[in-house]
Amino acid sequence: MQMLQTAAILFAIAALGGVLMAGIRFARKVNPPAWVAMLHGLLAASGLTLLAYALCTQPLGSAHDTATVALVLFLVAAAGGAVMSLAYKWKNRLLPAWLVVVHATAAVLGFLVLLFAAFASA
């Protein structure tokens, strides 16, 4: 459970960067700075890696299925983040609002499911 809880903390910190970037994108109608996006991605990737490692190596009991759902949702969010970075930000094109919303929705749902797996089962 400790690895799931640590992953949740990493995702929570990454979410702060996500909220900042969404605010920049929607309020100023420009892409957020690259350093914020890279830090956000690094923290989220660290949480994703730790979550996957915990699922592969630790006996999580009843939390295993729930944590697996969280992993899938975070993988969907990661795919959206990669598309935003490579297909839009890299080419200096404005991030599409619908993709930002889909990315955020998958990440928030994954985070809520992970919180349930990490803390409700503990």
Rank of each mutant, 00 (worst) to 15 (best):
Q2D: 15
M3L: 14
A7G: 01
I9S: 12
I13N: 14
A14I: 01
L16W: 07
G18R: 10
V19R: 13
L20V: 09
A22D: 11
G23M: 08
R25T: 11
R25M: 08
F26C: 08
A27D: 14
A27C: 09
R28G: 09
V30W: 14
P32M: 00
V36E: 15
G41Q: 08
L42V: 05
G47I: 02
L48Y: 13
L50K: 01
L51M: 00
A52Y: 07
A54Y: 05
T57E: 12
T57N: 09
T57C: 00
L60S: 02
S62I: 03
H64D: 08
H64I: 00
A70E: 05
L71N: 05
L73Y: 06
F74K: 10
F74T: 00
F74E: 14
A77D: 06
G80K: 06
A82S: 14
V83R: 11
S85A: 12
A87M: 09
A87I: 02
Y88K: 01
W90A: 12
L94A: 00
L95G: 03
L95A: 06
L95Q: 08
L95W: 13
A97W: 05
A97Y: 07
V100F: 11
A104R: 09
A107S: 02
V108T: 09
V108M: 02
G110W: 03
G110C: 01
L115D: 07
A120P: 04
S121E: 13
